[in-house]
Amino acid sequence: MTDTVSFHALVPAAGTGSRMGGDMPKQYLSLLGRPVIAHTLDALLRVPRLASVCVVLSPGDTWWERYAWPDDRRLRVLRSGGATRAASVAQGLAVLAGETSAKDWVLVHDAARACLAPEQVDHMLDELREDPIGGLLAMPLADTLKRADAAGRVDATLPRAGLWQAQTPQMFRIGLLADALRAYPDVTDEAGAIEAAGHAPRLIESGGANFKITYPQDLALAASILASRKEPRE
């Protein structure tokens, strides 16, 4: 495949982060003195090959304007977020579809995966740009898996061979992903829609640092990881 394509990042950030507790959406919680999502956007904007980085906010978001954001023409804000992640991604794709080719790539990334390294994104672009389907960052499961019964006791030990923990970015052709989400809007991630449409996304091995901030204790771990990288402060 020798066609020239462009790469775009899409960050759905319309959620409330209810598992964190409190009134502030988790993407705006303080992490090393800046909102969680600021670190996420920093990582994406440090990838020169990304033609745009689109943040999909809830139409009623009142937090975004309270902060200073990178002065980068590639950073775009779309106030068209939906009630679910899939709905927010679909709305973002609708905007991109009007400005790009269906063959161009979109990398959907969780706002709360603030420890993404730019090198991981560059590796994805290199590995997947000529792939017929696309793929996602993921990590092979290392822990033993237990299935619980209704009483909270172990019902069975499950084999972990071949099991991976899905992460983001998840990278697919804009046209293919838009079609898959229209057909399968109830998925929990983009790869799920692509799988439901009959395709097999490729797994690109990642690591534990690219975890999703979900609970209050996760902020301390993310701060430790970012501080160890001596992340620039803009």
Rank of each mutant, 00 (worst) to 15 (best):
L45N: 12
R46G: 06
L50E: 14
L50A: 11
A51Y: 10
V53Q: 11
C54L: 14
V55D: 00
S58W: 11
G60K: 08
G60D: 05
D61R: 04
W64M: 13
E65F: 00
A68F: 10
A68Q: 14
D71E: 14
D72F: 06
R73K: 13
R74W: 09
R76D: 03
G82R: 03
A83Y: 04
T84L: 06
R85C: 08
A86M: 15
A87Q: 13
V89D: 06
A90R: 15
G92C: 07
G92A: 07
A94L: 10
V95S: 07
A97R: 15
A97H: 09
G98S: 04
E99W: 01
E99A: 14
E99H: 08
A102Q: 10
A102M: 01
D104W: 06
D104P: 02
W105R: 02
V108W: 04
A114Q: 02
A114I: 07
A114K: 06
C115Y: 04
L116W: 02
A117L: 14
P118A: 10
E119W: 01
E119M: 01
Q120M: 15
H123F: 09
H123W: 07
L125T: 02
D126R: 12
L128Q: 06
L128F: 03
R129Q: 12
R129C: 07
E130C: 05
P132C: 03
I133Q: 01
I133R: 00
G134K: 00
L136H: 12
A138Y: 04
A138N: 04
P140F: 02
P140D: 03
L141Y: 00
A142Y: 00
D143Y: 07
T144L: 11
T144N: 03
K146N: 03
A148D: 09
D149K: 00
A151I: 01
A151F: 11
